[in-house]
Design a protein around this nucleic acid. Sequence first.
DNA 1: CACGAAAACATTCAAATCATTCATTTTAAG
DNA 2: CTTAAAATGAATGATTTGAATGTTTTCGTG
Lengths: 301, 301
Amino acid sequence: MNQLLSPRQVAAAIGVSESSLKRWCDQGLLSTVKTAGGHRRIPVQEALRFVREQNYAVVEPRLLAMPGTDNRKARRIENCAQRMVEELLGNNEQACQAIVFDLFLAGQPVSQIFDEVISLAFRMIGEKWERHEAEVYQERCSCQIALRILHELRSKQTPPDSGLVALGATIEGDQYSLPVMMSEIVLRAAGWDARLLGSSIPFDSMAKAIQQHKPEMFWLSVSFVPDESAFIAGLNRLFEVASKLNTAVVIGGRALTTEIRTRLRYSAFCDTLRHLEEFAKTLRRRTEVGPKKTHKPRKKG
Amino acid sequence: MNQLLSPRQVAAAIGVSESSLKRWCDQGLLSTVKTAGGHRRIPVQEALRFVREQNYAVVEPRLLAMPGTDNRKARRIENCAQRMVEELLGNNEQACQAIVFDLFLAGQPVSQIFDEVISLAFRMIGEKWERHEAEVYQERCSCQIALRILHELRSKQTPPDSGLVALGATIEGDQYSLPVMMSEIVLRAAGWDARLLGSSIPFDSMAKAIQQHKPEMFWLSVSFVPDESAFIAGLNRLFEVASKLNTAVVIGGRALTTEIRTRLRYSAFCDTLRHLEEFAKTLRRRTEVGPKKTHKPRKKG
DNA sequence: CACGAAAACATTCAAATCATTCATTTTAAG
DNA sequence: CTTAAAATGAATGATTTGAATGTTTTCGTG
């Protein structure tokens, strides 16, 4: 589903002349593919990357295969979570989409959108539920909406080409799929070939996956721990397996209290998706540069 | 393995018009074989060479995803499930997508694609798992792939305009989201404004949802029953609430054995999604036509 | 084998895109 | 403020693309 756009379409979408856009293509600011007849074609993901990086205002989002945006041009992230809560509980999917995609088009890092809007919104919904101001079904329905938005967002990312591989999952009994899907998107944005295995996966099966795929990273979003001691034992066992294959074990999630963490072995812990992004970028640099240096010894920091 | 492709197939694969592709053939950019009747046939390797040489972005990767299949034969639904299983376990998302979308574009009803390809494929994966031929993580990963395909499919549907409203869910403890999502798509295809509440919803909250939204239908996909007597009691309670508001309660799913069903109260039971579709269409006609006829009394069947 | 629907053919034509040039606007430096 | 450099966007004629047309071929089915 790799949509291609003509220079005219992209030019119209960002409100700029066709001439300029073609010049930018030729300068390499936008990578294009060419038809056999020599016409330029721009992959949507590439157009979106350009828009986000150059901070261009998108005049016609529909031309970029994006859902229509809110005209309020809410490019500021501050009050978005509050609005998101209202629109989620009101079952207003379009408005929710608009909030997220406006921020995305405005160039906000996905990690920040997730931390400061989506995660926050669901925390607020959780609090509302505790105060009996929201029903369970409303929370679940909101999850469905968010899931669809995440899918949409994922499909708009530049597909990973030949990056490092990361596998991700949630532990057995943990059914919260939103956080682990957000992690996947963040890792892909950071240049990783992140592959989500799914929710509720036994530790033994995770170990099998590591042995069979030999990823550079294995990440775990932990939103709920059904059995604390089993979790600790399982994760430490997993860390053993991963260590032997040079797989970094990264953990995060609201269920990981300080108390639990002290009894765990892992390569990195991330409090937020922003942390995850930072860590992923660092690890990528190290891992990619590292091997090249082996045959040319240098002193290390 | 000298598979031949028609110009249309190659054109679709690289996202250009048939006209252009044929022109390129005639210009010699693609060498073709001709049938006795003068139709162009393009060898797969020639198409691949062209794609690589032109540095062309593959829009519809069917060509690369399933180099061994002929489109006409691929559209026959019989062997799709078997191929689907292989591609799912091989983590080959594009090939899976190709299978489903080929059928969809060929005009197969979604209900049939789901019953005879996706559901069947997962049943086969389940059997493989029982024989220790597949890992848990592979099954979960396959679920993720299927979820993404369903999302894609859903986004391709014409959004429901002003149809009758249906709410759907799975019961508390039942985390199988694939069947309930397929139901949603089927209902939407049948003209309903189907809204999936989500997975694992307590009966009390379902009742709240019915009271607040007053849908014409409430459907339940039951793939797993954690507590049989609680389920029976809960559903019968739900049926009471629904009856008062003229909401039809429709149930289905592999966990509903005959034994359980005899103790349940419901408006309809559907063994397959095909049944669901049929029932939804019937109910829609009745419900839409019904009110208009009230002032013109007739004898009923 | 014959039939009929779906696919492919050749051809035409309007619309889109190309490379290039040039006037105008914006930016930056003096 | 002036001026030069850089960026933008409109205009040009040639080329490419894709949709539409009516006819012919292919292929599964009876």
